[in-house]
């Protein structure tokens, strides 16, 4: 067990079953116990359809577990949905920028929800765009930006609210390898620099090894098949061993 003593995200005996009219019910998550410590960067790895997104949605408060308890910051993210305004931010698989807003206006979105005055939110948004190398593009509409730039804007949007928890749903999977790698490195740096807790969903072993300081591999229906910790001291050889273990679990 690699979770630290004080979990900021906690799933206790959580199950999620989807019931469709006229069809057999489908268990997406099966009695999952998962704790994420504050400041931890957890890579949640699993095959397509293993329930990663369901776990993600339960932590985000977008869906409720069928049984078990999900808490974030000690609160129920589904029932106390509004409390998490400004406490949690999400980076999605696609950039999901509002096409009618410029880059800077998109970054300001979360701050608007927090009633931050225009001047302050503009300054914050500009600062984040600069950090992500988008100075000069603040007034561009999404259609005028490349895929990588758009995803940078969406990362800036998530960081701008200064939420202490970041949920990321395969945010770099749609980008080319080089852009993805660069953005991943930037993302890890920003998470560490700003002391965030991040849950990063991925189906790429390489990405999990690059990003996570803890990797949880899920079996189907979602439950922990492997839980490994990484540190800056983890050597390339050790990472290779972990990779083989993960491959073995995923192949099973």
């Amino acid at each position: 067990m690699n979770a630290a003593a004080v979990p900021i995200i906690s799933l206790q005996d959580v199950s999620k079953t989807f019931v469709k009219a006229g069809a057999a019910s489908y268990v997406a998550v099966d009695r999952l116990d998962l704790q994420v410590a504050e400041g931890q960067m957890l890579a949640l790895l699993g095959k397509t359809g293993c329930g990663k997104s369901t776990i993600f949605n339960m932590i985000a408060g977008l869906t409720e577990p069928t049984s078990g308890v999900v808490t974030v910051n000690g609160r129920n993210p589904f029932r106390e949905f509004d409390w998490f305004r400004g406490h949690m931010a999400i980076v999605f698989q696609s950039d999901r920028l509002l096409p009618w807003r410029t880059a800077v206006q998109n970054v300001e979105l979360g701050l608007e929800m927090l009633d931050v005055p225009l001047e302050k939110r503009r300054a914050t948004a500009m600062a984040w765009l600069s950090k992500l190398g988008l100075r000069g593009h603040e007034n561009d509409y999404p259609h005028a930006l490349s895929g990588g730039m758009r995803q940078r804007v969406s990362i800036a949007r998530a960081f701008a609210t200064d939420a202490n928890i970041l949920l990321c749903d395969e945010p770099f999977s749609a980008l080319d390898e080089m852009t993805g790698r660069t953005l991943r490195a930037e993302f890890v740096r920003l998470v560490k620099e700003n002391g965030k807790t991040a849950v990063f969903i991925t189906h790429s072993i390489n990405e999990a090894l690059e990003i996570g300081d803890r990797i949880v591999v899920l079996k189907r229906p979602a439950n922990i098949a492997l839980d490994v910790a990484l540190s800056p001291d983890t050597t390339i050889e050790q990472k290779e061993t972990i990779r083989h273990r993960i491959q073995g679990v995923l192949a099973a």
Binding site: L62, D82, A89, I90, L98
Partner: peptide, 9 residues
């Protein structure tokens, strides 16, 4: 897009 906006509560 609606989901994205909703994520900001």
């Amino acid at each position: 897009l609606v989901e994205m906006v909703m994520s900001f509560r």
